[in-house]
Nucleic acid binder design. Sequence first.
DNA 1: ATGAATTAGTTTCATATGTAACTATTATGC
DNA 2: GCATAATAGTTACATATGAAACTAATTCAT
Lengths: 152, 152
Amino acid sequence: MPAPTQALELENFLPYRLSILAQIVSEALHDRYVEPFGLSVTQWRVMAALGRFAPLTASDIGQRIVMDKVAVSRAVAGLMKRRLIERATDQADRRRAELRLSARGRAMHARIVPIALAYEKRLYEALRPEERRSFDEQTERLFAHARSLRGD
Amino acid sequence: MPAPTQALELENFLPYRLSILAQIVSEALHDRYVEPFGLSVTQWRVMAALGRFAPLTASDIGQRIVMDKVAVSRAVAGLMKRRLIERATDQADRRRAELRLSARGRAMHARIVPIALAYEKRLYEALRPEERRSFDEQTERLFAHARSLRGD
DNA sequence: ATGAATTAGTTTCATATGTAACTATTATGC
DNA sequence: GCATAATAGTTACATATGAAACTAATTCAT
């Protein structure tokens, strides 16, 4: 006789659980610092990357944070319009443009970072201190493994 | 002197890490069973919910899985058009309609479930068996905690 | 040196999603 | 009983996102 179909319990299905967890956290960020400052999540990520590593080109950003070049291009356009970042064409290779936060952008960045870190701290309260390291390490392994499973 | 701004290292920032992990897993699902069967992720979730708990109304589905009623309505419309689910208006309360998989829907569901479970199994290979339980429990706590932090 | 292939980045189009307004039906207060 | 509120679900609009086509600049092969 055929093997019975295994049951798929969505609420215990790892991909589903990861998805809704990420979603609810992302909504919280939106409420706390993205929406009040009029940024999209991707725009904020670009600002965060530039806050730490500027100057970066759009491609650099895409490599640093997991974001394709179209998303970076759109986020950059929005940030430029609001004068939160500055662009300087590389004279040696005029396809490239170095990006960095403007004074306005640095000021906003400095206001948002503490809010972001405070939220992360509160979120981590769900885990005991010794669990945090192992949880981070496990998410890292899951991420690397999921990547290695692509197209296979 | 003012406290120095703490650094926000995006690659170590929990919300960011959860987001990219969920995203890469979601892409893998898309490639494996959503796209081949022409379903969206939300459509598949509705089918999964009905596969286990039918009959359900659209509202029931929204409660079972984390999905607002507009998303459910759209997924249901798409699934109805492809005759993967059936709708029967509740005669006692004609606002409500009970949904269940059609024969076609059950057949597709039976084909997809093993693919989904096989992917989950491979994903879990990143964790040692004893880590899986604790990881699941920790994601559960994070989820509940993130929920409790909403609007606060 | 010049045509082909690469690379950086943008634009376009089709689709997905969230919010709010809307229809239809049922429940509630008086 | 009847007006009002609440509920189930859909539609409309505005915005977000992904894939592919496109422009411009540079590199490579010969």
